[in-house]
Write a protein that binds this DNA or RNA. Structure first.
Length: 422
DNA sequence: TCTGGGGTCCTAGGACCC
DNA sequence: TCTGGGGTCCTAGGACCC
């Protein structure tokens, strides 16, 4: 059996930990640039706000109902997420951290020692006690069914936070009650397609024959079908290393001049290289993209992207940034109102198995890596951007993102630690 | 005025080879 | 001028996830 532990309205829940007066109040957390609502409490949902709504479209609701709004602070949420995973790992041997607010636990063998639902309720209580974050737990023979279970646990207080789907009867009942779009792996397109074929519920899908599913859906659809029927199909191995690393941002305002774009691309490339070194990896390609504001039909639209390849895979910030800037300069078109740039690293491999190049353009690699290590150490000790590139420090700073309602880094920065007045 | 960011995997079709 | 069969690799775009 698998258990899925899902934090309820996670980003909002973290903010509420540090703002206790907000209990029972409508709360929203915004995307970067304070652009969209990305997380909201049930109270905010009840007011008609939806995940993904642009902030300016729900401004009236927010003001009329005194909705508390926060800019997203991923550092804070990631720190809290690590604490929750730590508690899980102390309680269960096999924990797979799936996303910032979800983890799977493999419960094989535990059924001989415990009542599984009670066991997981105990862990949920521990998480609530140590972190103040409420969680919902689903338990089932497959991950897809465990996810479905966690939705029932979240929506109906009667389950006391834990819903176990462990009999055929419970499985059929659960799958008949949920909408198709609540099933993990079924997105908008697949839902529309299934509706067209006269398959209205997850149960109807599960009851189709294997041959029907194989001919009407593709590989992933077949996998979901197996999981809905209690056959585990989604593999449990942890993803160790990324295949690609991306840093990109929209700008708070439109940007026209090359110097500002260069500052943004340099900053993103530098950040990508940091993430790369943090996982002891090197990349063989770097892609740069830029685009205008696609929502403005009164402005000339332009988008472009280019990729450069490194013969010797690298994690050298200077090499990666220089290459990214060369591509940006080639693609830059004057007179365009730019809205977004980004940098993607690809063809990532472990840094301990790099094939050397006889004609390497960077002859002093060991010294350069020592330099990178020194930069990382300084930025780790004195905070990000203590050491950065001159090209990043463009005076106009018009490419910087908006983050007006951001909470302090309570958990990761000693200077921003919570103050309690007695 | 204001519309996020970061990922993974699959597949069809093109380009190329013999 | 017409033309088969079998294969690989790459890539853009689609679909999904959080």
């Amino acid at each position: 059996m698998y258990a899925l532990i899902d934090c309820n309205s996670f980003f909002c829940a973290v903010e509420k930990v540090f703002h206790p007066g907000l209990s029972g109040k409508p709360v929203c957390v915004l995307s970067s640039n304070d652009g969209c609502v990305v997380a909201l409490t049930p109270e905010a949902k009840a007011l008609g706000i939806r995940r993904g709504d642009p902030v300016f479209k729900v401004k009236d609701i927010v003001e009329r109902n005194d909705v508390r709004v926060f800019s997203g602070n991923m550092r804070l949420y990631a720190a809290m997420s690590r604490r929750i995973v730590q508690i899980l790992r102390k309680s269960v041997a096999h924990v797979e951290n799936y996303s910032i607010d979800e983890s799977f636990c493999c419960l094989d063998g535990y059924e001989r020692l415990y009542d599984l639902a009670e066991f997981m309720r105990g862990i949920a209580r521990k998480i609530a006690l140590y972190t103040d974050i409420p969680v919902s737990v689903g338990i089932a023979p497959t991950k897809t069914l465990a996810k479905a279970g966690s939705l029932f646990a979240k929506r109906h207080a009667g389950y006391q936070g834990v819903c176990m789907i462990d009999t055929e009867e419970k499985r059929r009942k659960a799958l008949s009650m949920l909408p198709l779009s609540d099933i993990w792996g079924v997105g908008r397109r697949t839902r529309e397609k299934l509706n067209l074929y006269g398959v209205p519920t997850p149960l109807a899908l599960a009851d189709k024959s294997a041959s029907w599913v194989k001919s009407h859906l593709q590989k992933n659809g077949y996998c979901t079908w197996l999981e809905l029927n209690g056959v585990p199909c989604i593999d449990t191995s942890e993803v160790v290393r990324n295949q690609s690393i991306c840093t990109s941002h929209s700008f708070a305002r439109n940007v026209e001049d090359l110097a500002s774009l260069k500052a943004s691309v340099a900053s993103f490339a530098f950040s990508c290289a940091n993430k790369l070194r943090a996982q002891q990896a090197v990349a063989s390609s770097v892609t740069v993209f830029l685009c205008s504001n696609r929502f403005r039909d009164d402005q000339e639209q332009y988008e472009n992207a280019d990729t450069a390849f490194f013969i010797t895979p690298t994690s050298d910030s200077l090499e990666i940034t220089a290459s990214a800037l060369r591509m940006l300069e080639r693609m830059y078109k004057p007179g365009i109102q730019y809205k977004k740039t980004g940098v993607v690293l690809g063809r990532i491999s472990p840094s301990d198995s790099v094939q050397q190049d006889l004609f390497d353009s960077i002859p002093n690699r060991p010294q350069r890596m020592a330099l990178m290590k020194a930069i990382d150490a300084l930025n780790c000790r004195y905070g990000p951007k203590t050491v950065s590139l001159v090209v990043e420090d463009n005076q106009k700073r018009d490419w910087h993102v908006k983050s007006e309602f951001r909470s302090p880094d309570y958990l990761t920065n000693i200077n921003e630690i919570l103050t309690v007045k007695i």
